[in-house]
């Protein structure tokens, strides 16, 4: 806006700036999109195209075999369902917990408020590796004040069940939840107080006001947080590797993909058979595309709310 005003007085400069800007935007978009284009191009190639020096981007022998191989090796339908369930559950719970916490920080004055917010920041600063072992042990021998041990004789093993994820999400202590609390708190701080006060004057209680004024007004920001939580759970390897290592989840299966394909190939074609790294790489690319395709679709669907949340969040308050 200010640049426009400045350049309105200097038309040649405007033109030049527009040109430079177009080049910058186009160039950066290219840099960001290039690996995606490369993945698609590699995923639809036949193996002989890799060794053909006349083939760079466009496959001569177009095939969907790589997708089929990756699909089968990842047991895609089942893995997809599991991942969808976990990601949806975690993102939903994290959204609820973080929204409540953020609203509490944004709107209420209570003793030690600054201290507790500092603690939210602390959960972001401490690297996950510092607490991963005690957390693992906590969930491996899960117990609530010895009640479970008293009832069943030994503590509960919650590893390879969704319980660790559910508990962490429910209590706003999941991956990057500090960031979500921060984003939502800033959003709520910029939310006009008059609306809430009007609701209070009209006799609505705190819960009613929260549900009927605050929530509908912050859909776009909540969609953004949900999107982040969903996506980062979907592709997470760190916590998934810790709590659900043996489960059929996309991030596990994708990491194991080339290993599984090579093992499968070896068992069918005999021990002397050789799988080229180029072939495995093509299958990997197909696998990556299978994993990110649902995310791309989700992003396209939620894109409007996502950009709206940027326009309306008012992070400077």
């Amino acid at each position: 806006m200010k640049k426009q005003n400045f350049f309105r007085k200097h038309p040649p400069l405007t033109l030049m700036w527009k040109l430079v800007r177009a080049v910058i935007i186009f160039g950066l978009c290219f840099v960001i999109l290039y690996p995606l284009i490369r993945k698609i191009s590699a995923a639809v190639m036949d193996e002989q195209d890799l060794f053909d020096s006349t083939v760079v981007y466009v496959a001569k022998h177009f095939t969907l075999d790589n997708f089929r191989t990756a699909w089968n090796a990842m047991s895609f339908p089942e893995t997809f369902r599991n991942t969808l369930g976990i990601s949806f559950l975690c993102a939903g719970l994290q959204l609820c917990a973080c929204t409540l916490t953020a609203y509490g920080f944004a709107r209420f004055r209570f003793p030690l408020r600054r201290f507790w917010f500092a603690m939210v920041m602390l959960t972001m600063i401490v690297p996950p590796t510092t607490i991963m072992l005690p957390q693992f042990i906590r969930f491996r021998y899960f117990d609530v004040f010895g009640i479970i041990e008293a009832l069943w004789g030994n503590p509960l093993n919650t590893i390879n069940t969704p319980i660790p994820f559910i508990l962490l999400s429910l209590t706003a202590n999941g991956y990057k939840n500090g960031l979500y609390i921060y984003m939502l708190r800033q959003f709520f701080r910029g939310f006009p107080r008059e609306l809430e006060e009007a609701a209070y004057v009209d006799g609505a209680g705190r819960i009613r006001t929260f549900l009927s004024i605050i929530l509908p007004g912050s859909v776009s920001m909540m969609v953004t947080v949900f999107l982040f939580a969903f996506v980062w759970q979907w592709t997470d390897t760190f916590f998934t590797g810790l709590y659900m290592n043996d489960s059929r989840l996309l991030s596990n299966m994708l990491g194991m993909l080339s290993y599984n394909v090579a093992a499968e190939y070896g068992s069918t074609a005999g021990a002397m058979s050789f799988v080229s790294s180029g072939y495995l790489s093509m299958v990997n690319n197909a696998g990556i595309l299978l994993v990110i395709a649902p995310l791309l679709i989700l992003y396209l669907v939620l894109q409007k709310q996502f950009t709206e949340s940027i326009a309306r969040s008012g992070l400077v308050s």
């Binding site: 917990a97 916490t101 509490g104 920080f105 209420f108 004055r109 429910l170 209590t171 609390i181 705190r206």
Partner: peptide, 16 residues
């Protein structure tokens, strides 16, 4: 207000 505030951030405190 203080009580309400603590109720809102209770999930975080427990998890923390």
């Amino acid at each position: 207000n203080a009580i309400a505030g603590y109720l809102y951030i209770a999930p975080f405190i427990i998890g923390f």
